[in-house]
Amino acid sequence: MLYSIFHLGNNLIGVPIYTILEIVRSSKFHPVRGASEVIDGLINLRGKVVTVINTGIAFETHKVLISDESRIYIFKNNAELKELTDIDSDEDMSPDNIGLHVEKIEGVINVDKEELQPVPTNMAHPFYQHVVRRGEDFIIILKPSKAIILNSTETVKP
């Protein structure tokens, strides 16, 4: 399966490609009055209103700021995910499209099922699904359906 990689502080995080609708450059957000700090705001993606979550705040590192390198993962909503015929997914996405604002993205990696390892207990986190080893690096595989519910909750602590 393919995963798109992004940076979160010193960690590399992988997101399953099939859950992504599109990746866009981050630009100005429309603020949402009264929303939690973890919400950067709303963006308009070709007529769709997308709520964007700041991964830096969500994972308690440092707030991701808009820069030349920052990007937004727009995740498919439930309906869009169900349209995929060849994918056997257990992800239960949001009814709306949700965005994840990240500092910097890397390339795409192909991971075989056998390579997916459980998250070590000392690293356990509600959003983490697996860990994959790539050379000297460990890549944490994110469970997007967990992460995107942040749009309606407070910051989740590990």
């Binding site: 866009v24 030349d68 060849d86 994918i87 390339g107 795409v108």
Partner: peptide, 23 residues
């Protein structure tokens, strides 16, 4: 730097699109 980022973005979005097309 900007163009490098744009090409990378297009490429990943292309992969997303190709994945959506299934096999």
């Amino acid at each position: 730097q900007r163009n490098k980022g744009d090409i990378q973005l297009i490429s990943i979005n292309g992969i997303v699109l190709a994945t959506d097309l299934g096999k």
